[in-house]
Design a protein around this nucleic acid. Sequence first.
DNA 1: TGGCCATGCTAACCCGATTTAGCACCCCGC
DNA 2: GCGGGGTGCTAAATCGGGTTAGCATGGCCA
Lengths: 353, 353
Amino acid sequence: MARKRVTLADVALASGVSSTTASLVLSGRGAELRISEAAQQRVREVSEALGYRPNIVSIGLRKGSSLAFGFVSDTIATSQLAGDMIKGALEAAHAHGFMLFIGETEGDAKVERRLVNAMLDRQVDGIILASMFTQTRRLPSGLDHVPAVVLNALPLEPHLHIPVVVPDELEAGKAAARLLLEAGHRSIHLVGAGPGPADTPPATVAGRERLAGILEVLAEAGLTPASGHLCPDWLPAYGWEATRAIIESGGAGGAIITFNDRLAFGAYQAIHEAGLSVPADMSIISFDDYPLADWLRPGLTTFAIPHYDLGRRSVELLLEAIAARDDGPANPAIVHRLPMPLRTRGSVGPPRG
Amino acid sequence: MARKRVTLADVALASGVSSTTASLVLSGRGAELRISEAAQQRVREVSEALGYRPNIVSIGLRKGSSLAFGFVSDTIATSQLAGDMIKGALEAAHAHGFMLFIGETEGDAKVERRLVNAMLDRQVDGIILASMFTQTRRLPSGLDHVPAVVLNALPLEPHLHIPVVVPDELEAGKAAARLLLEAGHRSIHLVGAGPGPADTPPATVAGRERLAGILEVLAEAGLTPASGHLCPDWLPAYGWEATRAIIESGGAGGAIITFNDRLAFGAYQAIHEAGLSVPADMSIISFDDYPLADWLRPGLTTFAIPHYDLGRRSVELLLEAIAARDDGPANPAIVHRLPMPLRTRGSVGPPRG
DNA sequence: TGGCCATGCTAACCCGATTTAGCACCCCGC
DNA sequence: GCGGGGTGCTAAATCGGGTTAGCATGGCCA
């Protein structure tokens, strides 16, 4: 174990040049600094033969950069979706030679501070503050010295140089309502929020914005929701409960907008248990695009959270900030809203009768 | 942006001592090296006041370590489960002051090599090679210089110093069969593999071992499976199909072992569509403990893959290897099998009639 | 008065790269 | 034969810490 790595000095020695020369050649500045073609050739061959790889830690010390970003999330284990966000960030980072440090805070601001510090101690070139749960948040200190991006959350006090990347929930809410209206529905029930604009779970921007979009489009059509069901949590059991209530009060034949796919799953269960079927008796449209949505029978029509794109975009913003650091001004604190693509499956049909 | 960080030299200057002294004091070797209590006090106060934090990149250069591990996975976005594995690794690492670099290979050996190299270039103190898909694998080169662990996969050519961490699938298979036998079942159908010991999907150790465990216990009871259904993939649609076949050939009243929870989901759908119910008409037991298992009605009884523990254990093995590096011998290439805990929900009952 | 020891600290080198400043050599022209 | 300029390379500083070897000072004892 631990046979020593080949260093630049080894390459230089074996090529009969100074390490300065070796460095210049290998960084492509050989011609510029007038190193003879013969010497360049030799250095490159020796480097290749010895399997030389530069020590990035050393470069990091010299340049104050580490070719790494920090990705700090409140949770990474809730769902596949978090994984997709990381995947997007990872691929964008790797494509530019950057690595990603991952950290999980579980929503604890103290843990977050510790992680951000640990990453700054490792000279990361940027930090992504991601959220899966919480949708509005405070920012930790220490982010003045390094590019940062807030991902899938809105900062309570917007920071001058920290851009934000979020899904366009408002637009998706509008699209959901439009889609049901176009299918001919007039009786539209909401499960997870509503019926009023203030009936939204606390601390989730997603709920508030989806609801606002839905209500706006319904209002344009001269409608209000047939009913609204605020749930303690967006889990199948509550979707089941709310849907039973809808059916018992004669809502069958209409449509349901569930505020996420787990609620929709509960809705399917209630509809099937009542001897009804989707979409013949009830149409359902939802948000998130959990893997589940594709497994249900019929498949669930839903607006996907663009997790992969969110992750990618956040890294790209860091890269832009780095590129701009030297000359241009820093990132403006723009809120980037990424579209939520519709996954059309089989859960929406015309109203019954 | 980028006001300079406080360095050790800054602290030394402000305390009126040399940086050597400051270093000794802050690393706790002050008393040992006979620095006066007054000087120590001063250094500590100044350090605190200036908010000094040591630059880990610098320490890494000197010591050849980076207080970071690499976590290279074939995929991190398949499911929540991958996230749990990372979470376990993350928590164990953070508890010991280590960070985690994450990488995703998508099963491509070339990408894996690149990632492993990129991590070695950053002087990681250990590497975890994790799998979600593939269950047997080759090892990349370059792992002779640094502690490594294989996670959730079996190496094709066991390496002398690389331990392996996997779930104990064989034991879980046995326990599943035992549980159904104890509930009184004699007619046991397999969905996902079987009926013979060779009827297993290629390249999955999980399938082979679960099956072996099941067959062993059934054989001890003088039984063979009532039927076996090898599926192209372990997805709901195939579970649905196989279960329909079981019901059509008069299997209702018996029990099903599905080889994972997604197959079980399909089985539930088929059973409900046939107007039957779980567990009155059919008992189901499964493996994985997807979140789904808890959402089904009734809840699915299943053996959980101990993802969190797997992640934790792999980091602990790296820490042990580091601790042993100086004196003791390297890690032996032991295969660590972690138990798969049973999640008892409502899907298993006595046979009908 | 000189030697010895304890006390309290620091100079200087090291890790592995990048980068600045500059040196030695040769050729050419006057 | 001496200055000027181009060519080809290198010494040395630097990043921010850790570490080794050793240097002043003062007190005590013979």
